[in-house]
Design a protein around this nucleic acid. Sequence first.
RNA 1: GGGUCGAUGCCCGAGUGGUUAAUGGGGGUGGACUGUAAAUCCACUGGCUCUGCCUACGUUGGUUCAAAUCCAACUCGGCCCA
Length: 405
Amino acid sequence: MTDLPSWLSRGTNEIFPSQPDSSDPSENLVARLKATDRPLRIKLGIDPTGADIHIGHSIAMRKLRAFQDAGHKAVLIIGDFTARIGDPTGKSEVRKQLTEADVKRNAETYLDQVKPILDFSEDKLEIRYNSEWLSDLDLNKILELLATMTVGQMLAKEGFDKRYKQESPIFLHEFLYPLMQGYDSVAVEADVELGGTDQKFNIAVGRDLQRHFGRKDDSPPQFGLLLPILLGTDGQQKMSKSLNNYVGLGEAPLAMYSKLEKVPDALIEDYFTQLTKLDLAELPENPRDRQKLLALDVVTQYHGKAAAEEAQKASLELIKGDAKQAEAVPEFSMAELNFPAKFFYVVGKSGLCASTSEAKRQVKGGAVKLDGEKFANPDEMFESAEALAGKVLQVGKKRFVRLVL
RNA sequence: GGGUCGAUGCCCGAGUGGUUAAUGGGGGUGGACUGUAAAUCCACUGGCUCUGCCUACGUUGGUUCAAAUCCAACUCGGCCCA
């Protein structure tokens, strides 16, 4: 049989079912793509559990876009219903439940953030909320769903297995999650479902359920296409907001750029593969140039070329420590401070430190500079704001603020 | 429902009546070094305009000159039995 086209294979971890030598469209995705007489329906579900999505999430979105460009239909499912339960995949704890209002707000910002990635033309994209079909399931239907799987099958799932062995609690409603995600596939008649490698179980459940409930036009059950989980900028754990190793899609150009330009060397090829269309064979030799190219390319995708180049310039200036030169230094008004004031108090209130106590420690530790000069006496008194006006206060290498009246 | 064990700082985890924000590790922040990285070394890591004051060891009460440490009830979780 034929090889996968590169738009399909780039960065793809696994496709299942996969019988590379078969021409049967139910077990070979390339054959399926060829055999179809209609655009395939490509499902990707996201649960609006937080306000931000990051470039790790963008991987599946980009693949979805690739399908759109190849003429297929993206079916983006906003898991407004499932978000309230929480996907137990990879979690060692129960996720806290969200209110309807939270979920709605999150969904809106999500859509906003994926605008640069997806093709939003009407015939290319279908956006569905899974409360549409899940909120009306009656007990009969739920029992039917539950009867398709055994406790053993559920406990074989990685996250549950681990939690079970660690003696941490697993609530019964969590067992429902894979079934609901699978039922989404039934409801939207998905032909392919995209997801991270950790989604294999849930996507496989979708196949089972499609088979169980049958499909309108007797199409074969959905294919699963698994994409790698992006490691965070720390190079250690998967990218996640709570680990603070993420690059958010909604971030400002400079913030995005400066995070991306220090991606560890070991990860940079993965990042190029997953986040850009650049040819890996033509990357620069110098690792530092690679980082810059990556940062520039990704920022361009979300903010345009001009903003990306500006971010690159600003970032260079910041690194040189030339804070006074950089225009991007935010201002902090001292209007609400009470003078006379000790130095650490000013630093603490400036927003550069989390607390005045931390500010004091940072000053003592020699991390604080005023107009580029190290300033290590936390108890230095300033009689009035005028004495500090116009100066640049700096904590560490990355945090700056210009003091104004 | 019965029995039993457990709940400590961002996380893990010591500590079992006595001066002390509370050992250690991870993580984080800062410094040196460097490619702005990694690795390594060092420092810091509850709050407060702070030579001191305040708040902390699941919650609430109690015993005591004194409790994270003892007692009681409650909440939450694990395990065993049903």
